[in-house]
């Protein structure tokens, strides 16, 4: 199969993720959309690695996964804390950082 198709898939996934981030309110869903975008990027990296015949892309994909894992931990902790204090997981309710 033509590897370029994977790039199309990655672009599709990224777009879905981005749209989710912009449209959805639930913090958990938002968070999953961010993960989706990260994974879309990973897929693109791996595809390019395959296309170019070297391992750089795969290494970066591993890095991304590790960083994403760490980010999930911190992010979920924040979401849980916000939920506890505000009884809501909606990001719009937490729009206090403005003048």
């Amino acid at each position: 199969m033509n590897p370029v198709n994977y790039l199309y898939l990655a672009a599709l996934l990224f777009t879905i993720g981005a749209a989710g981030v912009v449209i959805r309110r639930n913090a958990i869903v938002l968070f999953m959309c961010v993960e989706l975008m990260l994974n879309a990027c990973n897929l693109a990296f791996v595809t390019f690695s395959r296309l170019h015949g070297n391992l750089d892309g795969q290494i970066i994909a591993f890095f991304t996964m590790v960083v994403a894992a760490a980010e999930v931990v911190v992010g979920l902790a924040i979401i849980v804390t916000v939920f506890r204090s505000r009884h809501s997981a909606s990001v719009d309710d937490a729009s206090l950082m403005k003048l």
Partner: peptide
């Protein structure tokens, strides 16, 4: 310019995109 800072995460995401 201050109005741009409305506190909604998605607005910032849109500006980043």
């Amino acid at each position: 310019l201050r109005k741009l800072q409305n506190g909604y995460a998605r607005t910032y995401a849109v500006s980043m995109f």
